[in-house]
Design a protein around this nucleic acid. Structure first.
Length: 222
DNA sequence: GGCCAGGACACCA
DNA sequence: TGGTGTCATGGC
């Protein structure tokens, strides 16, 4: 079932090849800046940092909070996000001495717990970083994922993050490439048609919604 | 002018 | 444990 949904989405929207970003740090910064913000606004802030040659842990740590806030103004919540970016870069220095390879070599649980210990890094942002920056096989759950799968009748709308993440990892084989593409497609689909007020006529999953999914629940795609 | 966008956290009941 | 307010800009 989950594979058929994936196939339908990729046929309709094409491969997304997420995350847009040239370096691990750029992806991490983007993950924080896009919190509750459209990617366009976040991307503009990432570009500002990039053009000022400030996309490194050390550069971000050395910026004072107000200056960093001004640089990322377009991403919204700029005071909050400036603090969060500095906290993330402090963590990378404290734990890994800014060595991304050392960081990448850690196991998922250690990394996830470490990221979640940073003020301002929640489950979704931590998993964005794990999946797209560090290429770990974790499934990112966001509001679009919850909205889409609850409307398909597969999961409860207000299910916990763990409920959703277990739903995917137990039914879709552990593969960071697949997980990355799947999440990207859900975001693209969600932002296109699965709004708070859905545009059902334009939804490429419409017939899946109509036929029901009882018989296909929890079937593995691997 | 209002709604929404690739969240997280503090506070309260 | 779950609901609500706050943080904020930019596009439609």
């Amino acid at each position: 079932m989950l594979l058929s949904i994936f196939n339908r989405l990729i046929e309709h929207y094409g491969p997304q090849n997420w995350w847009p970003g040239d370096t691990v740090i750029e992806i991490m910064v983007g993950a924080v800046l896009t919190q509750a913000t459209s990617w366009k606004n976040a991307e503009s802030a990432v570009e500002t940092l990039k053009t000022n040659n400030l996309l490194s842990p050390k550069s971000i740590r050395n910026l004072d909070q107000n200056t960093l806030g001004n640089l990322i103004y377009s991403s919204g919540y700029y005071n909050v996000k400036a603090k969060r970016l500095k906290a993330l870069m402090n963590y990378i220095y404290d734990q890994f001495n800014d060595d991304i390879e050392t960081m990448s070599s850690c196991d998922i649980e250690t990394l996830r717990n470490g990221l979640l210990s940073i003020h301002g890094i929640g489950e979704e942002t931590a998993d964005d970083i794990l999946l797209y920056a560090l290429e770990k096989p974790v499934f990112v759950i966001d509001s679009y994922t919850k909205r889409i799968f609850s409307r398909l009748g597969l999961t409860p709308l207000h299910g916990s993050y763990k409920l959703y993440s277990d739903f995917f990892t137990k039914n879709v084989c552990l593969n960071s490439k697949l997980y990355g593409e799947y999440h990207a497609l859900l975001v693209i689909h969600g932002s296109a048609t699965c709004k708070p007020i859905p545009k059902c006529k334009e939804c490429c999953l419409l017939d899946v919604c109509k036929t029901g999914v009882e018989n296909m629940k929890f079937s593995s795609i691997c």
